[in-house]
Amino acid sequence: MSPLFAFQLRRVGRNRQYLLFTVALPAAFTVFFTQVFAGAPGGISQEAAAATMVAMMAYGAIGAALGATIRLSFDRASGWLRQLRVTPVPQTSVVAVDVAVGVLLALPPLVVVALVGRFVNGVRLDPGAWVGLVGVLWLGSAVFVALGLLLGWALEEKAAGGAMGLVATVLAALGGLWVPVEIFPSGLRAVAHALPSYWYARTGRDVAAGGLPDLTAVAVLAAFGAAFAVLAVAVARRRPLAAVAG
């Protein structure tokens, strides 16, 4: 493990808020939504319980991936990135570590919410489907790592602080992770279909249902990921690291 990777991981791990919002909150929501629907007349089907779990896994992973990466805006503002640039630590490994930290931190919410789904809400899947579900959502989280890096480079410190909480919530709400897209009015449904979060959850639902992820969903996610990455690089290149005054 590279020293910078360990260093960055320790910094994020120290942030209790981050852990609360990306792991504890989605886990709590999984229980909450499922129990609420279970109390309704007719109860809750296995499919609905699984869908809620998948949606909360997606929500947690999106929040974790964004939260771990948007924070690079703070390191820009504090001058730490600039300071790091005048040490032998290569710029490529600074970027690689940001990506790796974002991807790694997307995993805990996936695993924790899956465990809650299985043992608290009694969701039953084949062992292969469990592994596939976590795997496909983990892989897909790279799209939101790219988005987080883009926002981290593009936004100033204060805006970035707001975006950390807001973007994941908006992506989750409009992408049908809170409330299923099926009960959206048609206009909102079109909005959902334009968001990567919708397609992300879709890949999870497909795998949880015992199949392979929908090809359209995979293609859309890949396109979003590529676009975010290209934009992130373009924005980062335009950011001067040198002090302009003096």
Binding site: V12, A243, G246
Partner: peptide, 23 residues
């Protein structure tokens, strides 16, 4: 640097360790 800085959520010893190891 005039506008260089130290990272948040990190201890002095950790930062120093990281930078020393890079040389």
């Amino acid at each position: 640097l005039q506008h260089g800085g130290l990272p948040s959520e990190a201890r002095v010893g950790e930062v120093l360790h990281l930078v020393r190891r890079s040389y």
